[in-house]
Design a protein around this nucleic acid. Sequence first.
DNA 1: GCCAAAATATGAAATATTTCATCCTTTTCG
DNA 2: CGAAAAGGATGAAATATTTCATATTTTGGC
Lengths: 228, 228
Amino acid sequence: MPLKTTHCNSCLFKAICDRTLGKEDFDDLYRSTSFQTFRKGEIILRQHMKMSNLVFLHTGIVKFCYNNFGKDIILTLDKAPTLLGLANYLNNNMNFFSIIAIEDCEGCVIDEDVFKRILTNNPAFALKALNSFTNMFRQSMQSFISLSYNQVQGRIANILLFLSKHIYENPVFRLPLTRKEIAQFAGCSTENVINTLRKFNHDGIIRLNGKEVELTNEEELLLICRMG
Amino acid sequence: MPLKTTHCNSCLFKAICDRTLGKEDFDDLYRSTSFQTFRKGEIILRQHMKMSNLVFLHTGIVKFCYNNFGKDIILTLDKAPTLLGLANYLNNNMNFFSIIAIEDCEGCVIDEDVFKRILTNNPAFALKALNSFTNMFRQSMQSFISLSYNQVQGRIANILLFLSKHIYENPVFRLPLTRKEIAQFAGCSTENVINTLRKFNHDGIIRLNGKEVELTNEEELLLICRMG
DNA sequence: GCCAAAATATGAAATATTTCATCCTTTTCG
DNA sequence: CGAAAAGGATGAAATATTTCATATTTTGGC
């Protein structure tokens, strides 16, 4: 499997492991992983499935989705490099949300038993892994707070800033979500997203062309986040 | 400190520790704890404060509050027995929300350094502690989903069912929150809470008298949760 | 028991949001 | 390539929600 070997030399997950895991533990982990690619739209971990894997994502962006009676909600987004599946793992191995690729992704699938063995024997590694979980939790809380606090334009401003700051680290980017997905993220109707984005564009707060966005007035966006 | 000694013999936290901690570790923890009472409304852990304690709550109910520019949001509620402060602890010791007593509470305050030492040296204990964190996370997710999904009456139905199932384990209970606090939990105006509760009462779904509530038609409440 | 403050209640007007019907544009796929 | 599907856009009507003004009731402290 040449891809895996090539990647492993420069793998961030390996770097983390190197600092906290002994050679024996890492070799154990290494033998149990398999390099995989996921197409845009593919489900990496499926809600309500008993799972036996974690995935260390090397490249790409994913969405955390919760499905309730046929309707989808986006909890948050995450990008590589990141460890996927820890929250589900801690929830008695039952996935409470799905993780879905929103662009083509590459990652290493890690066997759950091996992961558990290392986690149990290696507190330093466990704390490291937990940090990743805490970050996801904090980010989800931010969305939660925005939902409970703001009206729709505040939530959409929040999402734009989130994409700019946390995902692309650039005021100019291409929206990785459709208007419908933004609506699932903001907890509102698709039409409301379309109108609000066009309003922002009209007011000169953003420059919008299809999926291409530029945040031209971040202060104003921040203000909208705070005020409503 | 006679209270502490009395309690310690029957303490659930001790029971958990006994199964996962050696005597030496537990004695360490024991010496560092102090038994405290918290009045209704008292802040047990304060948002944005650097914290150096966790609290094992013996009796009482608390709210998890996030304050944003003077406005409060309730993330979830929890009741004794439970370990408070783990999420904050994992967030680089910075409290990202406050934990406030909504009725008189008793708990043991645990020194953070001692806790950390044990957590690091004892993976089985760490996993146990994590479970508590995961439950809090899952509950917060439920609120999040309800917010993003439902309209106000769905969210209030959700809160009523949450109180009945998870806090009181009884269809009859006394509301521990004011209408204003329910509004902070449901992400809506106080008036909307009042009107919605009265509507539920009028429709015979609940029986309401001041703060006394009886859920007389849980199926209908569940339906409202699902449908919006 | 009394007072002040907080909580609860009520309705009307203003605002926000969804729903629905319709149309245009882009993407996907045989 | 061309048809079908998906995404995006638009405006009007229906609905949900907040805001505000005001009144009543309950609670906590003295």
